[in-house]
């Protein structure tokens, strides 16, 4: 059994190289190699997971996690922004599945509805308005692909180490917390009526926060309208282009 740290380091290195190869870098080739390296890195990384104990749950988890992460990588590396958006939608579905798996049913549905249903469509809409011709030169060229890939993957590695350290029983920084039992969970977040419980929570304890969030939404709505109206009259090309 090799040292998990070595495996993690290898996964980080492979992931960084793979992502660098996959990112748009002008006419450079090597996306397929990058994809292979990325999948290897993902596999190595998954091998360090603890698993959920049941093979069905494990299978579900790994499939959904793979979907989420691979689709996210696809969204980040695609040359065509429309493909980016579609990959992002897929990643959202994976995330929604993971949220279901962790027991947050309402969040899963809300993510799909709000993100995939509203925000993503808005993105696509703006893309169509702004850039109907497909790829632009800025999509073919990343900014400092190597450095940013290294930084991002290093972030993943550091966070992984941190998570492993925090959750290990020997962590000195945290007082030991007893994990909840199945009974407690069933009476808590995994209650069959958990959506109702979440509603109680939101409109009970967190009512003011909800009101503030609503006000924020209203302000954003007004702000967006003002911004578009304020600047659309001053376009340099003189064309009246309505959104």
């Amino acid at each position: 059994m090799p040292d998990p740290r070595h495996i993690l380091t290898l996964a980080v290195l492979l992931g960084a190289v793979g992502l660098w190869l996959m990112l748009p870098r002008g006419g450079a080739r090597g996306r397929a190699v990058g994809a292979v390296l990325g999948i290897v890195a993902l596999g190595l990384w998954f091998s360090q997971f603890h698993g959920l104990g049941q093979w069905t749950a494990d299978g579900m988890f790994f499939v959904l996690a793979a979907i989420a992460v691979v689709a996210a990588v696809g969204a980040v590396t695609s040359r065509n922004p429309v493909y980016c958006a579609i990959w992002f939608g897929l990643s959202l579905l994976g995330t929604a599945g993971l949220l279901l798996l962790v027991g947050a049913q309402f969040l899963a549905v809300a993510t799909v509805l709000v993100y995939a249903g509203a925000i993503l469509v808005m993105f696509l809409f703006v893309l169509m308005v702004a850039q109907p011709e497909g790829k632009a030169s800025c999509d073919r060229m990343s900014w400092e692909a190597g450095v940013s890939a290294a930084a991002g993957i290093a972030m993943v590695g550091v966070l992984s180490v941190a998570i492993g350290g925090i959750l290990s029983p020997s962590c000195p920084a945290m007082p030991p917390i007893a994990p909840p039992t199945q009974e407690e969970l069933a009476a808590g977040v995994l209650d069959p009526h958990q959506v109702a419980r979440l509603g109680d929570e939101l409109f009970g304890r967190r009512l003011i926060a909800v009101e503030v969030a609503g006000t924020l939404l209203l302000a954003a709505l007004v702000g967006a309208a003002v911004i578009v109206n304020q600047f659309s009259g001053r376009r340099h090309d003189g064309q009246q282009r309505t959104v």
């Binding site: 900014w143 450095v147 940013s148 930084a151 991002g152 972030m155 550091v158 966070l159 941190a162």
Partner: peptide
């Protein structure tokens, strides 16, 4: 003036802080 340069600098800063904490 490049937004991404600033973002990258921020990432490195966070990395350094996390490293020190670890």
């Amino acid at each position: 003036g490049l937004v991404q340069f600033y973002a990258l600098a921020m990432v490195f800063g966070v990395l350094v802080l996390l490293g020190i904490m670890l």
